[in-house]
Design a protein around this nucleic acid. Structure first.
Lengths: 142, 142
DNA sequence: CCTATTTCAGTGTTACTGAGATCG
DNA sequence: CCGATCTCAGTATCACTGAAATAG
């Protein structure tokens, strides 16, 4: 094999597996008329109403991208922004009823992609992989 | 936990772990004055002289990005392109001596990043992870 | 004074698409 | 005519930076 320097590298294996997963995910979300940031942000709002900064921290979306994504989601009637009376720097972001419906719709899409991504692995290997990946990703303080 | 819909998703765990790995990798390559595509393409040329199309296939870089990357590498004197006499559609791409030196230099950078990425795991878990990721990434025909 | 939040504008890498010209 | 290669130009998502305005 000519490119052994690369093919055994953990960062390579990780990026290949992730590329395949993200292709499937983005393809499915695009077919549903949505995108990754939209799903992430709607999902973060499922239980709580949050400020934009807190929202971005929870789903690891940059403050700047939160603004742009919320502008789209709000103009589509999926979320609602209102000034926080307790701290007037903040916006309180909530899911609208239409937003909750959209979240459920996208969630079905996302769940079905998980099975497709994990198709090569049995149940036990799926659990092992999840556990190993979680340990790698936990050190994400930056 | 408020965003359980996301935090247990394999595609989420994969993207988080990969983001951390790529941040470390790109940071280290940038500090060394290089980038991911440059390393990948130099590494692919280690043993063989290849056409651009074959090169792109081996390290999964799009034909279009191969052109742009080779233009930079060639102007830096790291690779050499010449028309293939046997098939005049093709360019034969070879590493120059300076290119081989650069590959060795970048290789040291990349290797040290692997240890940093895998720091949370012991030797046995590292092998398991590599094996599981390889099985996920193998289905990359598209 | 310093920090946090929201917003805007812009950058960067990776990944990808479409089309033209050349050649087998 | 079809298919492969190289090139150019442009797009998309995600990730990120710097700075201004506002408020605690």
């Amino acid at each position: 094999m000519p490119h052994d320097r690369i093919s055994a590298l953990p960062t390579w294996l990780l990026s290949r597996a992730n590329l395949r997963a993200q292709r499937l995910l983005h393809g499915a979300l695009a077919a549903a008329g949505s995108r990754g940031y939209h799903y992430r942000i709607l999902a973060a709002l499922e239980h709580d109403h949050l400020s934009q900064a807190e929202l971005g921290r929870r789903v690891a979306v940059d403050r700047s991208d939160v603004v742009a994504t919320l502008a789209t989601l709000e103009s589509d009637g999926l979320v609602h922004r209102s000034p926080d009376p307790a701290d007037r720097r903040r916006n309180v972001v909530r899911l609208t009823p239409a937003g909750r419906t959209e979240l459920d719709r996208l969630d079905a899409v996302v769940r079905s992609v998980q099975d497709e991504v994990l198709a090569p692995l049995g149940p036990e290997d799926r659990r092992r992989l999840a556990s190993l990946l979680a340990r790698l990703g936990d050190r994400m303080d930056r």
